[in-house]
């Protein structure tokens, strides 16, 4: 059984409300001002680099959908809804995904991308008919090299309404979150894997109670050490993801100092660079976008989860 994060009930007392809401609002502002950069090129389904085209669009959809659904402030939900609508329009109301699947029927990413929209109720009947066939093939059930990615595919399947191609718990057991290895052995790549284990398991923070007590305890113990480490290394993007994970824990702690560091790491116009200093003056607009869009979305996402987290002071017992 899982309990979902509470539906928005209007702004309520939160020790970090002002800071968090400012970060979310300014982040969404920045994304809105730069939304032209999410535009897909004509060769998106063939020769374009998906890391510069589809990945940003998918992240825009995933994170704006979450904010549109959960943020307690109606005006921020409305802003996030506009961004989600923009992403759906760029995906040509789903047509894009049929094109991508036909181009590469073995690939998981078109299904994962479509799942982000389907979760938000943006669906396309032709895509669903198509992926019902491709994901029903025995070839789709073959193990993937990356167990975290398997969780992403499983979550997308659930969102679209497709049967799981393999057991979620069995896949989870092979991940960092499932194994819970020595916390001092975590490095940047596995840390991103761990944050995504949590995101896929909890449907991006919507169902935090899917974290087992043992997993929650492991994260409670070690998140402060990881967050501290990566703030010191000025990897703002990863620090933002770790704060999002922290907001999924029962009895979450609002770490004001960490949020303030992220706030201070932003550019003058409200973007958070992925790491280190903001791009120097004179950097091209496209480069600035690439350096900042992900972390800025993550910051707005994490700020939304933190805003709706069950704080330690509110936890039962």
């Amino acid at each position: 059984m899982t309990t979902a994060r509470a539906a928005p009930a209007g702004p309520r007392a939160h020790p970090g409300a002002d800071l968090l809401d400012t970060l979310v609002a300014e982040g969404l502002d920045w994304v809105e001002r730069h939304r032209a950069h999410f535009r897909l090129p004509p060769d998106v389904a063939t020769t374009a680099d998906p890391n510069l085209t589809l990945k940003p669009l998918g992240e825009l959809a995933e994170l704006s959908a979450l904010i549109a659904e959960l943020h307690p402030r109606p005006e921020l939900r409305a802003r996030a809804r506009r961004l989600l609508a923009h992403a759906w329009q760029e995906a040509r109301q789903g047509e894009l995904f049929a094109e991508l699947v036909r181009g590469e029927p073995q690939a998981t990413y078109p299904v994962e991308l479509y799942g982000s929209f389907a979760r938000a109720g943006l669906r396309d009947a032709a895509v669903e008919e198509l992926v019902r066939t491709t994901t029903g093939l025995r070839g789709w059930q073959l193990a993937r090299e990356d167990h975290t990615r398997t969780l992403a595919v499983l979550n997308a399947e659930a969102r679209i309404g497709l049967p799981h191609h393999t057991d979620f718990g069995a896949a989870l057991a092979h991940t960092w979150l499932g194994r819970r290895p020595e916390p001092w052995f975590l490095e940047c790549r596995t840390a991103y894997g761990l944050t995504h284990d949590v995101f896929h398991l909890t449907d991006w923070g919507r169902a935090p109670s899917r974290l087992s007590p043992a997993a929650a305890e492991y994260l409670r113990l070690w998140l402060p050490a990881w967050l501290g480490s990566w703030l010191e290394e000025r990897l703002w993007d990863l620090a933002g993801e770790l704060l999002a994970v922290a907001a999924c824990l029962p009895g979450a702690v609002f770490d004001a100092a960490a949020w303030q560091r992220l706030a201070a790491a932003r550019t003058a116009d409200g973007a958070l660079p992925e790491r280190d200093d903001p791009p120097p003056p004179g950097t091209g607009a496209a480069e600035c976008f690439t350096a900042c869009y992900h972390s800025t979305l993550v910051l707005a996402f994490a700020g939304t989860l933190a805003r709706t987290a069950t704080l330690d002071s509110e936890a039962p017992g």
């Binding site: 916390p183 001092w184 070690w222 050490a225 480490s229 010191e232």
Partner: peptide, 10 residues
């Protein structure tokens, strides 16, 4: 223990 984690990472 968190300090140990941080120290090893550093």
């Amino acid at each position: 223990a968190r300090g140990f984690v941080r120290a090893v990472r550093r």
